[in-house]
């Protein structure tokens, strides 16, 4: 298990003021953050205001030293026993960094594998299986500079898995990828957790990605944890409105009145709009589900229903709501 306790990171930033004068200012990127990573589970890290997601990942992967607080990996301290921890973790970042462009895909994996102490047949087997896994087997002997973005990203994944890490950090892994490739990647990540038992920490700008993949979500604002729960609980706990939408061919005055009354009874609101096809679109918003009373009301008015849909609040709504509340 990876346990982060009260982790804090402060950067000292130098500001130039003229030729020789400079001033140091302190910026708190992560404040008092605690979380744990468990095998087989994916946790998501979502930020509201430029929060220290990347900083958190770099601290977990031993690249950065926390200003205070501790991170332990299977009981080993990430600062003191960093070599032990390094062997157990790996990181995959979005974009096209972290690969040697002049080397081929296979040569990249050979080099990084060697840095993890792998060698000989074991390394060769591992590379072959990883290349197959990420679908780069055919392109293995092509220099990385000739790879497409998606291929580089997949090679990054292979590099991130070269040491068979127990803990994997994914920093915006789908950044700038085409939709089908991103979807394939998400599937892959989900399998890594469910089938290979990896503990995964994921950050992403794409909230639906986090919603789809993560078992738990940590929401941080300016480096501080503001919410932590499963995606479903998060959306429910905020009691955001469910939107119920119905399309009907005509709207009588009495129906209009009854609809307004219905919304008032349930403490919600009602919107009516005429569509281009000469039909009416009624939207009822409220904390409680109004589907049954709405349907009986429409039946009472003998109004046909052309379309009916409900919109549950999404994680994105949660984030936007929180951002609004916090004055983003």
């Amino acid at each position: 298990m990876l346990i982060a306790e009260n982790v804090r990171k402060v950067y000292r930033v130098k500001e130039k003021k003229g030729w020789f004068r400079q001033q140091w200012t302190e910026v708190e990127a992560v404040a008092d953050l605690s979380f744990r990573m468990v095998p087989g589970k994916i946790i998501g890290l979502l930020g509201i205001n430029g929060a220290g997601k990347t900083t958190t990942i770099k601290m977990c992967s031993t690249l950065l030293t926390p200003t205070s607080g501790t991170i332990t990996v299977d009981g080993y301290d990430a600062v003191k026993d960093d070599r032990f921890v390094k062997a157990k973790v790996n990181m995959i970042a979005g974009g096209e960094r972290m690969l040697y462009w002049r080397l081929t895909g296979r040569e990249n994996l050979q080099y990084f594998g060697s840095l993890y102490g792998l060698q000989g047949q074991a390394l060769r087997d591992r590379i072959d299986s990883l290349l197959l896994q990420v679908g780069l087997y055919e392109a293995a002997n092509t220099p990385v500079e000739r790879y497409s973005k998606g291929m580089k990203q997949r090679l990054q994944i292979a590099r991130g898995l070269i040491n068979d890490p127990h803990y994997l950090f994914l920093d915006e892994p789908t950044l700038g990828l085409d939709a089908p490739i991103a979807r394939q990647l998400r599937k892959h990540v989900s399998e890594l957790a469910s089938q290979h038992g990896k503990a995964i920490l994921l950050t992403s700008h794409y909230i639906h990605e986090v919603e789809e993949l993560c078992d738990e979500v940590y929401i941080i604002d300016k480096g501080r944890l503001v919410a932590h729960d499963t995606p479903e609980h998060l959306t429910k706990s905020l009691h955001l409105d469910t939107a119920l939408q119905v399309v009907i061919p005509s709207l009588s005055d009495s129906l209009d009145y009854d609809l307004r009354q219905l919304a008032l009874d349930y403490g919600g609101s009602r919107e009516i709009a005429e569509t281009d096809e000469q039909t009416w679109e009624v939207t009822l918003r409220g904390k409680t589900d109004m589907t049954t009373p709405l349907l009986s009301l429409l039946a009472a008015h003998q109004s046909p229903v052309l379309r009916l849909s409900t919109q549950q609040p999404s994680l994105e709504d949660v984030i936007l709501h929180m951002a609004d509340r916090r004055g983003a």
Partner: peptide, 13 residues
């Protein structure tokens, strides 16, 4: 400069 430093520092080498 080439963006590979982190990848090297990540390893326990």
């Amino acid at each position: 400069r080439e963006g590979t430093l982190e990848a090297v520092l990540l390893t326990p080498s």
